[in-house]
Design a protein around this nucleic acid. Sequence first.
DNA 1: CGTCATGTATCGTATTTACTACACACTCTT
DNA 2: AAGAGTGTGTAGTAAATACGATACATGACG
Lengths: 117, 117
Amino acid sequence: MTRFGPTIRAIRERLREEDRRYSVRQVAGRVGIEPAYLSKIERGEVAPPSETTTVRLARELGEDPDVMLALAGKVSADLQTVIRKRPRLFADLIRQLKEAPDEVVLRVVREVRDGNW
Amino acid sequence: MTRFGPTIRAIRERLREEDRRYSVRQVAGRVGIEPAYLSKIERGEVAPPSETTTVRLARELGEDPDVMLALAGKVSADLQTVIRKRPRLFADLIRQLKEAPDEVVLRVVREVRDGNW
DNA sequence: CGTCATGTATCGTATTTACTACACACTCTT
DNA sequence: AAGAGTGTGTAGTAAATACGATACATGACG
């Protein structure tokens, strides 16, 4: 059901065509897990790894951690912390934006970024 | 470390002063857990319960589920789903609003609610 | 005084999460 | 042809999660 593994594999293999340092073994080594484990992750034989491992993997492969976490079915712990500090506010906000088109969300992001509060 | 248990206890005891149906046993019964378990939760002897149980408990006690989940150190699964569908967008938005005062967030919520997209 | 309800102590467990360790077969290079 | 490197199969595990079941002591109540 999860496309996490295959996606990782695709990205790694793409990188590997230009750089031999992107073998299962070497990547696993740099990320700090066992090669056999990475292999299983890539084939979806096991569930996606922990947040920490997922983020390290994302960085190693030059991908956006938040996107990879999403593929792994997770939401970064630091985002959760922000939400948990003001649950009503953020719950409302997120539910409000649930169906909103990308542009609307983007406009809000920019508005707040540039906003002089 | 977690104020979840004591908060639940306080709320339940307050309700109980006016209604005997808010004993550990009866509440546990309606929520669908063992009284002994609820007792341990309230005293913080065990970690806060699962999302499902937390939400049922919140409803039973007339409290906001999102707030109770926050106290339990969790973020509602449906909010996480929303975020996971557009991780970059929502990650940006939330980090952007991390330090923003309540009013600013509130203004955004209203703006989007009334917005005619 | 008996019984009924209260909260709690104790013990146990199924399931999930997140991995490690080792060995093996195959391929590629030199 | 030998060695290095490649991916993977198999087996196992420590820790966390999320509870259930039973029994027990205490106090209130009629």
